[in-house]
């Protein structure tokens, strides 16, 4: 298998992965804020949104965005369509892991902030988030790994990522087993270290130590 070809594919894979991850985190913050809103209305809207986003397979989302719902904007670029589709889906998961991280901070920490009249911004930035962040990161990382694997689906709408390139080389006569084995290793080279990193961060968190 041609290494230059592999690198081309890897570029596409990383582009989809990093792009959709960034979008997922951005929208995830909105989802988490919505989940914690005092308004029943906002909470209901977010709940429905999360159910819709999670309930449709990633591939169907991609096809919908690529062929129909993109309003002409996404139809030209399969990579862009894949970024938006995976970003939307994972915003639901990342949003919930942000929410879970905040909920894991003991109530007493919030109460102490209140009792000392700390401004909300200070309470979040200096007390709550430093404790919640390792927990959010640990569970978000698990989603980031599954997101990396899901980028492979984008080959079906013709995004120039690794699976797409590997498939093409095979069509042109390369050995199928070797080609797909090599890209399998490349996926592992990213997902395994990230998994270790997540566990290391989680192990260092204050809340994990207390329990």
């Amino acid at each position: 298998m041609d290494l230059a070809y592999l690198m081309q594919g890897l570029k596409g894979t990383l582009l989809i992965w990093v792009g959709s991850l960034a979008l997922a985190v951005l929208l995830g913050v909105v989802v988490a804020a919505g989940r914690r809103s005092h308004s029943t209305w906002v909470r209901s809207i977010v709940r429905v949104w999360v159910a819709i986003v999670r309930g449709i397979p990633p591939l169907v989302w991609m096809l919908l965005l690529f062929f129909g719902l993109g309003w002409g904007l996404l139809g030209d670029s399969p990579i862009f369509a894949a970024v938006v589709a995976l970003g939307l889906i994972n915003s639901a998961y990342i949003g919930d892991s942000i929410n879970a991280g905040l909920s894991a901070v003991p109530r007493g920490q919030w109460e102490a902030c209140q009792a000392m009249a700390l401004p909300k911004r200070v309470a979040y930035l200096r007390v709550i988030l430093p404790q919640a962040f390792p927990i959010m990161l640990a569970s978000s990382t698990a989603y980031a790994i599954s997101l990396l694997k899901n980028t492979a689906i984008a080959s079906i709408i013709g995004a120039n990522e690794m699976v797409f390139y590997a498939y093409n080389t095979v069509q042109l006569g390369a050995d199928a087993l070797t080609s797909f084995f090599v890209i399998g290793l490349v996926y592992l080279a990213f997902s395994v270290p990230i998994g270790f990193l997540a566990r290391w961060i989680e192990g260092r968190s204050v809340i994990a130590q207390v329990r």
Binding site: A112, M116, L118, Q131, I207
Partner: peptide, 27 residues
């Protein structure tokens, strides 16, 4: 009004000194 809780509720990521100083600075 100063409040002391049953379960202390010290800020876990702050040192003793920082715990005592934080609200003096920010509140």
């Amino acid at each position: 009004v100063g409040m002391v809780f049953q379960s202390f509720n010290l800020f876990a990521t702050h040192t003793a000194l920082q715990n005592v100083s934080i609200a003096q600075v920010h509140t």
